[in-house]
Design a binder for these strands. Structure first.
Lengths: 259, 259
DNA sequence: CGTCAAGTTGAAACAGGTCAAATACCGTGG
DNA sequence: CCACGGTATTTGACCTGTTTCAACTTGACG
């Protein structure tokens, strides 16, 4: 019953008990495990299923012929890989585990059934897909316009808020199970510079980062320093509105703030 | 009847005469015009229609509070803006005309009808949406990993090939109706550096660029120099396969090459 | 307690940015 | 057909954020 995807989708819409059951079942279908650094799927492969991340982190990435690697996006628990990939013949990028990971494979047929019989879920999955696209656009802005300092800060804001949405934060802290090399590959910087920039963020008291444990003492301060604007995560939605109307706080953390 | 969107979608699938008629009608619905630099829709607006670009170029962009601007993607004729935006409450970015432009507004209802009655079109629109997402990912790689030289070269390859797909190239030439400032905002470089880099591309004979007229004497050479890999455009598809089988060349240019 | 990956540091080099001015281009009105 | 004004392109000199390279330290884990 308890399922991070449900948490996330309820940011957007209110799901019925039946809807939730359907999603819970889906997460119990073909469950797979991978070790850190193993791929879930590789560039060139024919996509067959949609992957739902249950535990651990993964990422999309692409490697250029000369070895340069760009991490294109991060997947955290509750994230769905690519809702409609089947339409394409071959993957144009790989998806790799960053930590040991468990995920559920959802077949094309299962998904088709859900989408024809459960309009509420369908709409919520749509929303999730559009938010994913918005995140990708924001990464374009991040890489194109922000300085190293802002860029890293922005990434940390985004990840913290996404984790909050599925209930994986504890107060102002969360796990950040990635290496500095991976942060470098995601931000288009070198490891060395990521290291120095993290020190700068720490020096200004914007983050605390020991090992894989991240604390953001003042999220608003970090957002300001990183030129971060929440709106691209599209959290201000019906789910929230319903919560407010019912005076019924969502079980998971909230994306939006204030009015 | 003649419609650039049809050209593009036929890269992916074979459309029936009726399908084509439906698409042609759509392009004749609510046609609008905008001057260069005018916005089609602005960040914060509620999205109501899907825009189909008929003539001229546009772009998605985002402006940071301090004025930095990132162009997130280019739209060329035949491009569809955002197939499912209605799900979102507000735009998280703006879409602006780069040249004088004409576009058709497609209503939510029209689109719903098409998608429930024309599975072939639906699937083709899916494909288009997924290719758009793949392009956005490739931009992430471009901004994160490629040097200024490769980055500009890569962008020019992509645009040339996309124009080819809708039949807007003449041999190895096409129009490139954007300013160096706009190329700079798209690549995350400064105008000055774009200017110098374009001179470098010209100097190596990889492009000719007078005014708004671009020639790519040897596309493969430009691709190699730019670490460009066609596969993210997902052109190797059913439409092509059918063409090959029938020995019936597509009316528009082709994305894929060789076998 | 050894080993291997991850994180940290310093010095030097460079890609790309900044600033500011010059030149070319283009549509408009006289 | 030319002069004008505004925008786009080009150039030069200088500056800086980020990279490179290479070594050193710390930490996790069997």
């Amino acid at each position: 019953m308890h399922n991070l995807l449900i948490n996330k989708l309820e940011q957007f819409t209110r799901l019925s008990a039946e809807d939730k059951q359907v999603l819970a079942d889906v997460a119990q279908g073909r469950v797979r495990v991978r070790g850190a650094r193993e791929d879930l799927i590789r560039e060139g492969d024919k996509p067959t299923d949609v992957n739902l991340i249950l535990e651990g982190w993964a990422c999309r990435y692409k490697i250029l012929p000369d070895g340069r690697r760009q991490i294109i996006s991060f997947f955290v628990p509750g994230d769905l890989c690519d809702l409609h990939v089947f339409v394409l013949r071959a993957m144009d990028h790989s998806i790799g585990a960053l930590t040991p990971i468990t995920f559920a494979e959802i077949s094309r047929e299962t998904l088709r059934d859900i989408m024809s019989n459960h309009p509420r879920i369908t709409e919520a999955l749509w929303w999730d897909t559009l938010v994913t696209a918005a995140i990708q656009r924001e990464w374009t802005v991040n890489l194109g316009q922000r300085s190293a300092f802002e860029r890293l800060g922005h990434l940390l804001c985004e990840l913290f808020i996404r984790l909050q949405a599925v209930g994986l934060t504890q107060g102002n802290a969360c796990e950040l199970p990635v290496t500095q090399t991976e942060l470098a590959d995601a931000t288009g910087l070198t490891t060395v510079h990521v290291n120095r920039t993290l020190q700068e963020l720490r020096g200004k008291g914007l983050i605390k980062l020991h090992g894989k444990h991240l604390t953001v003492p003042d999220l608003e301060a970090l957002e300001t320093a990183s030129v971060f604007n929440l709106s691209y995560l599209h959290a201000d939605h019906e789910g929230r509105a319903l919560d407010a109307r019912n005076g019924e706080a969502g079980s998971a953390g909230q994306w939006s703030r204030g009015a």
